[in-house]
Design a protein around this nucleic acid. Structure first.
Lengths: 237, 237
DNA sequence: AAATCTTTGTACGGTATCTGACATAACCCG
DNA sequence: CGGGTTATGTCAGATACCGTACAAAGATTT
């Protein structure tokens, strides 16, 4: 296993010459930093190394719901490689962190070469598609306890930590529910000893327990986000 | 506007030499024909010309929910171009029709050329992603009346008809609800004069009315599925 | 230390949807 | 024509979640 020091799933898998051509710039992501906003031109791709960002869709009544989560496995703005010029959804930092930016022209040039970068970028888009589809089904069929457990686990995985700062208010937005509903649901998970929290600081205590409480959607999404860069799940050239 | 006789959005936009290289075969799709099944290798792509197919995700309790809809704009199996070898979800015909099949090797070869076929295929994947994300949000926030209206409109658009055969039982599966709930909700739309139906035969009577009853998600998804092949929304090379 | 803001707990009536059951009517088949 | 199947209508009790409101406690500012 070759290693080049990157934590980002995609960057980690790339050779030095490709990395060089991408002309990456280190970036810090503050809490609540808006990475993309609907209508804005996409000028940069971002490869997260640490932290977590959410993509949300905003409805006419101002309410929003999460439709995608980004962590160390992510490439934010890949849709620019799919022929999209302008951002369609809001993307913003939920857990501060850092990563790398890449000019979209550099990424497009590398993508057009049709090599390993293209291969991985497409695999990642596919993983994002699975995430969105599974979420669509999940949101239609599973209750808040299952979905909250799923969200907390995915978040912990993406951010690679068992403790993070998210208020019930934010969680309600992510899951498309009301704050009091989240408070009661989180209270249930707390009483079961699966998590603990206070004033926005959440700690996951029992991952296997939470996984059992959550629906199958967690493992399906996790599997795709964790393994999209693996050879055995892919067409080996 | 050049025209080559195809009704499929993607095929319609391709030049004769590309069409030739894809070595298309005409295919008929019977009602309830299983086009893909989870775990099956993807051997062919399918370009629908008429009819409608649904992609569903099946949960552990055997229930299923629709996560994608395919009509004359569709390429079924594009994920094979994204590096996926095996089908992840069930895809089956809801409205009988016909189209063209294409061996996956031929499609991959053409895709690797990096020309207009690749461009359109990627644009279509992006449209599918938008559909899945918007559905995820919609399923979390909107009620059955809105979502049923959305589904009926999208279905009518995909299949290019205002009359089609779908039972309440099937609709319940698509939307992730129960059959009696659909019956009451459909009854409301009927009493409002927006649709009429009997024993699985549904007819849409008032598209603007249904659109108003539905949520904004309908037009967002429709817009992307209708226009992914347009130049102005894309990066023009 | 007081005032203010943020976060969480909780309660309560209202609504949407579930669950399961039963009835009816249309259609299909022999 | 009669019996079985499929599609729909409907109902009633249970549950999940909404919508709103208010209180309490920790954090932050003055």
């Amino acid at each position: 296993m070759r290693t080049n020091g990157f934590k980002n799933t995609l960057l980690k898998a790339l050779d030095g010459d490709i990395i060089e051509r991408l002309r990456l710039q280190p970036v810090k992501f503050e809490l609540n930093h808006e990475i993309e906003n609907p209508g804005d031109p996409i000028d940069n791709l971002y490869f997260l190394e640490e932290g977590m960002a959410s993509m949300t869709t905003t409805f006419k009544d101002e309410s929003q719901v999460e439709v995608g989560m980004f962590g160390y496995e992510s490439v934010i703005g890949v849709s620019a490689l799919m022929g999209t010029k302008k951002s369609l959804n809001r993307v913003y930092t939920q857990i501060a962190g850092h990563g790398y930016s890449c000019r979209v022209e550099d990424a497009r040039r590398e993508f057009r070469l049709g090599g390993y970068f293209q291969f991985l970028a497409l695999r990642y888009v596919q993983a994002q598609l699975v995430q969105a589809m599974q979420s669509a089904g999940c949101n239609a069929k599973h209750n808040f306890e299952q979905r909250l457990a799923r969200w907390l686990l995915l978040c912990a995985d993406r951010a690679n930590t068992d403790t993070f700062k998210i208020s019930h208010e934010f969680l309600a937005d992510m899951l498309g529910g009301r704050r009091p509903t989240i408070s009661t649901t989180a209270g249930i998970l707390k009483r079961k000893g699966l998590i603990e929290y206070a004033r926005g600081e959440i700690r996951i205590l029992d991952i296997p327990g939470l996984t059992k409480t959550s629906c199958e959607c967690y493992l399906i999404i996790k599997d795709h986000l964790d393994n999209y860069a693996e050879f055995d799940t892919a067409i080996t050239a």
